[in-house]
Amino acid sequence: MEGLKFLLAFVLLALASSFVSASDPSPLQDFCVAINETDGVFVNGKFCKDPKHVTEKDFFYSGLNIPGDTSNIPVGSNVTAANVEQIPGLNTLGISFARIDYAPYGGLNPPHTHPRATEILVVLKGTLYVGFVTSNTENRLISKVLNPGDVFVFPIGLIHFQFNVGKTNAVAFAGLSSQNPGVITIADAVFGSDPPINPDVLTKAFQVDKKVVDYLQKQFWSDNN
């Protein structure tokens, strides 16, 4: 009996540790400024610059005051990212940032997920209808209309969106709990994959006529990031 309890405790600890490792691990040093070269120490997917050569530029990024152009993007939104690719000093720190601009009524940051990050969004300008959908056990929509100063959280991995319901441009800023949160835009991933997913799979999955799937796969799926 004691042996069974020990085994159960060991399994629970193993599961707990696997859940913890699902997000960016905690750093083991002050910083690990990312470099593209391979002559450093391999940490969290990026090599580290020699700390003696680190400067303030490694932790700085300028330009989030500049509106993103939404005029030539079909979905009417533009995401300006500030992650480890733009700020090398974010490497191993488990955080990043983004600015999202939305065209007047109809500007959409389409349904997408961040596989490695929870997102916290604050509206600076305009009115946004936002929401996320819970996992398949319920598929429940949790949504809210946000005004300037309002904050909303999108849990890690869940499908979410933002839609401008105002008559003017809208602007929001988002913090994400990963140096490289990633983004999977649902329509783009499903209907715009390369090579395409077999139409028979999508016809059965979405319970629609094959002509609908063929039409969707032929569309140009734009990237607003």
Rank of each mutant, 00 (worst) to 15 (best):
H114E: 04
A98L: 05
S96D: 03
L141K: 05
T137R: 13
L128A: 02
L128T: 07
P115L: 00
I120D: 12
N136M: 09
E138I: 05
T113N: 12
Y105I: 08
T137G: 11
H112N: 08
T113M: 05
G131D: 07
F132I: 02
T118H: 11
E119N: 12
P115W: 06
T127L: 02
P115F: 04
T134W: 05
I100G: 10
T137Y: 13
I142P: 07
G106Q: 03
Y102N: 05
Y105N: 14
G107A: 01
F97W: 11
N139F: 11
L108G: 14
T134K: 08
V130H: 11
G106N: 03
G131N: 06
H112E: 01
F132V: 04
V122E: 15
H114S: 11
D101V: 02
R99I: 02
T118S: 15
V123Y: 14
D101L: 04
P110K: 07
I100Q: 15
F132Q: 11
P111F: 02
L124T: 14
Y129E: 10
V133C: 07
V123H: 14
R140N: 04
R116L: 03
L108P: 08
A117D: 11
N139C: 03
Y105W: 09
I120V: 13
R99G: 00
G126V: 02
G126H: 08
V130K: 13
N136F: 13
G126A: 04
Y105Q: 14
N139K: 11
K125G: 01
E138L: 01
G131C: 00
A103T: 01
H114V: 04
G94K: 07
T127F: 01
D101Q: 04
G106A: 07
H114L: 02
T137A: 15
A103H: 09
D101N: 07
H114N: 12
I120M: 11
L121S: 13
K125I: 03
P115D: 14
I100R: 10
P111M: 00
S143H: 13
S143Q: 14
S143W: 08
G94M: 09
T127W: 02
E119K: 05
T134M: 00
I100P: 11
V133W: 11
N109G: 08
L124C: 13
L141Y: 02
T134G: 11
G107C: 02
L128N: 09
T127A: 00
A98T: 05
I95K: 13
L124R: 13
T127N: 11
G106K: 02
I120F: 12
E119I: 01
G106I: 04
V123S: 15
T137V: 14
V123G: 14
A117E: 10
P110D: 08
I95P: 09
A117I: 00
E119D: 12
S135I: 01
Y102F: 09
P110H: 08
H112F: 04
P110F: 06
F97R: 10
K125Y: 06
P110S: 05
G107L: 00
E138V: 01
G94Y: 06
T113Q: 05
A103C: 09
K125M: 10
F132W: 10
T113C: 09
P104N: 07
G106R: 00
H114W: 06
